[in-house]
């Protein structure tokens, strides 16, 4: 795994390796010394063309816990906001000796382009690209689901909301289906992409029916700009038909959990009492995000070494 661009690139074994690694790394959080020396001397650059404090901080914490040097470029206050191109920014980072670039970009495919254009030689981790994917979010969601449900095989996960514009939904559908879960998307038809019938999941317009006996429900944020673009008649109607409230949460299976990638519109897609209720794992998701991103950085940077070193040291191959 040289790069992490899309969850659809991950095999089941690769996905499980990331999740298992994250589980071990998560235990570091419980120790007095919350730091590992693994990536000492490596440079991880967070390149955020789009504002996302949560994801940026999570990646920063992950890299620092692995002792990497972290450089952060954010849209505000750098040349990124002055119209410097993705390519020129990438070349700058390469010149600074970045070993990995964590990129958040408003254009779908920008991380893919960065990884395949030949502009840079470092590893690329997609931290959310346009309306395409957000693989580490899906991995932390899967991680959280595993913590609560143990096995994902055969589990029923319902994802509700603006699937059309959601990179979280795309990454989750691919990853959760790879891990054997049965995913159902629920949204008004206007917020489902053309061709969603070809995705490895079921689709429903009826939230109550989908929630009945489900093991988990993930509520997607409804962006403000969608509310004014005729995707649905009113926030009130959306909330009534597709919002998660206490009555609906009660339809879930025993032990089922409620996820939200944040930030939430309380009262819109999720009611406050459900967001703060016993089934909600929304705060855990944030904690797990750091562990998952540590695992990703470790595996991606290690794989990079593996590519270049090959049969580095046969003698050292024997346990020392």
């Amino acid at each position: 795994m040289r790069h992490l661009l899309s969850t659809s690139d991950l095999t089941r074994d690769e996905a499980l390796l990331i999740l298992d690694t994250a589980a071990e790394l998560g235990r570091v959080t419980d120790r007095a010394v919350k730091k590992l020396p693994t990536l000492r001397g490596r440079t991880v650059v967070n390149l955020f063309f789009e504002d996302s404090t949560r994801t940026r901080i999570s990646f920063e914490a992950a890299a620092k816990r692995l002792s990497a040097d972290v450089i952060t470029f954010s849209a505000k206050g750098s040349s990124v906001s002055k119209g410097e191109s993705l390519k020129d920014t990438a070349l700058t980072l390469e010149a600074m000796g970045a070993d990995a670039v964590v990129v958040r970009h408003h254009a779908s495919g920008a991380p893919y382009r960065l990884a395949h254009s030949g502009w840079v030689g470092c590893s690329v981790v997609n931290a959310g690209d346009g309306t395409h994917e957000h693989p580490t979010q899906a991995l932390l969601d899967a991680f959280t689901l595993r913590e609560h449900l143990r096995e994902l095989e055969g589990r029923r996960v319902v994802i509700v909301g603006d699937v059309l514009h959601s990179r979280v939904a795309r990454s989750n559908v691919a990853l959760l289906s790879t891990l054997g879960a049965q995913v159902t998307l629920v949204a008004p038809p206007t917020l489902l992409p053309v061709g969603v019938d070809t995705w490895p999941c079921a689709v429903s317009y009826d939230l109550d029916a989908a929630l009945e006996g489900a093991d988990a429900v993930m509520m997607l944020r409804v962006q403000n700009e969608r509310m004014n673009a005729a995707y649905f008649p009113s926030t009130h109607e959306y909330s009534r038909r597709y919002g998660l409230d206490t009555r609906r949460a009660a339809l879930l299976a025993d032990g089922a959990i409620v996820l939200h990638p944040g930030p939430m519109n309380r009262g819109m897609e999720i009611s406050a009492d459900v967001a703060d209720g016993p089934r909600s794992v929304i705060v855990e998701q944030v904690t797990n995000g750091v562990s998952v991103r540590m695992a990703v950085l470790y595996l991606v940077l290690g794989a990079r070494a593996e590519d270049s070193a090959g049969e580095a040291s046969a003698a050292e191959a024997v346990s020392a």
Partner: peptide
């Protein structure tokens, strides 16, 4: 498990972690 403390990750690549 000492994987995360190895000084040869650059040479050997990552390996799955075992429980500590």
């Amino acid at each position: 498990d000492i994987t995360m403390y190895r000084d040869d990750i650059r040479l050997r690549g990552p390996r799955p972690l075992e429980p500590t």
